[in-house]
Computed example of a mutant assay.
Amino acid sequence: MIDLHLIGIGTGNPDHLTRAAIAAMNAADVILLPRKGDAKSDLIDLRRTICADVLTGTTRVIEFDLPDRDTSAPYLSAVDQWHDAIALAWRDEIAHHLPNGGRLALLVWGDPSLYDSTLRIADRLRAEGLAMRVTVEPGITSLQALTAAHAIPLNRVGAPVLITTGRRLRAEGWPAEVDTIAVMLDGDCAFQMLDAPGILIWWGAYLGMPHQALIAGSLHEVAERIIRTRANLRERHGWIMDIYILCRDQSGNPG
C-alpha cells in the first residue's frame, strides 16, 4: 500500500506552507520532486529550498524527470497522453524507491484542487491496480495570493465568479451571465482580445516570491504594460506563472 500525500505548497513562498503540510512532509518516507528542464530550473530550486527549510528527519528527497507534453497535438488528447506518461514515471519511481509500500509525498504548486491534475494522475495508477490511499493537504492557491496581493475581494456582493483559462477566454470570449472572471494558464494574454472599455484587471506574476509583479487598472490603459512586463519577466527568468482577475467596471473593484 502506498500512502500518497499531495501537499499544496502555495505559490513559491515557504511561508505559505501550513503546519499540516510541514508535518506531512516530515512523515513521508519519500518526496518526489519533478524536474522540468533547464528553462524552469527555478521551480525545482524552490521545491529544494522548501524541503531544506522544513525537513528535520529521514525523509528522502528524490528527483525525477517529468515527461514533456506534445504541444503539436490537439490540446485535450495531448494532455491525456501526457498524464499517462507522468503516471508511468510515478509508477517507476515508486517501484524503485518504495517497492514494499510506504508514505510518498508530492509537492503541488498552489493547491491540488485548482487547475492541477495530480489527483487525476493518482486515479490512473489506482485504476491500473496500484494499492494507493490518497490524502490532500490543502495549500494557498494563486487566486488567493492574487486577491491578497491586491487587497481585493474575489466576488461582488452575492455575485458569482467564473474561473477559466486563457485558452477558453480566447476561443469563447467573455462568459455569459458573470461580471467577474479569474483567468489562469494564459500564455498568450487572451485579455487583449476583449473589447477593453469598461473592464478592470488585476494581474500578478510570481505571487508571494521576492520578484512578485503586480499591475492593476483599466484594461484599456494597462493591457500593453502587462504584455510588455510579462514578456520581460519571462525572458529574465526563463518561465512565468501569472494569473489575473477581470471585472466589468461597476464599482471600481470586485466588491
Rank of each mutant, 00 (worst) to 15 (best):
H16K: 07
L17E: 02
A21Y: 00
A23L: 10
N26E: 06
A27C: 09
A27I: 08
D29T: 11
D29L: 06
L32W: 00
G37A: 02
A39G: 11
K40R: 14
K40H: 14
K40I: 08
S41M: 10
D42Y: 08
L43A: 02
R47M: 09
T49C: 05
I50S: 00
C51I: 03
A52L: 10
V54I: 07
L55F: 09
L55K: 04
T56V: 13
T56L: 04
T56M: 11
G57L: 09
G57W: 07
G57Q: 07
T58M: 07
T59R: 07
T59W: 05
R60E: 11
V61P: 10
V61K: 06
I62G: 00
E63F: 06
D65F: 14
D65T: 14
L66K: 02
P67I: 03
P67H: 01
R69S: 01
D70W: 10
D70L: 11
D70N: 14
S72F: 02
S72D: 07
A73E: 15
V79D: 13
V79G: 13
W82S: 00
H83S: 03
D84K: 12
D84P: 03
A85G: 01
A85M: 04
A85K: 06
I86F: 14
L88K: 13
W90A: 12
W90F: 15
R91W: 12
D92M: 13
E93N: 11
E93H: 10
A95Q: 12
H96V: 08
H97L: 07
H97K: 04
H97C: 09
L98M: 11
P99N: 08
R103P: 01
R103G: 02
L106S: 03
L106F: 06
L106P: 01
L107R: 05
V108K: 09
V108P: 01
V108N: 05
W109S: 01
W109C: 01
W109P: 02
G110I: 03
G110V: 05
S113N: 15
S113A: 15
L114A: 13
Y115M: 08
Y115H: 13
D116T: 13
D116S: 14
D116Y: 15
S117E: 02
L119I: 15
R120F: 08
I121Y: 04
A122K: 04
R124H: 15
L125C: 12
L125N: 13
L125A: 08
L125M: 15
R126M: 12
R126T: 02
A127P: 09
L130V: 06
A131P: 03
M132F: 01
M132N: 05
R133K: 07
V134H: 00
V134Y: 01
V136E: 13
V136R: 09
V136D: 10
P138C: 02
Q144K: 05
Q144L: 01
Q144M: 06
Q144T: 10
A145T: 07
A145E: 04
A145G: 04
A145S: 14
A149E: 01
A151V: 12
A151Y: 04
I152Y: 10
I152T: 11
P153F: 05
N155A: 14
N155D: 13
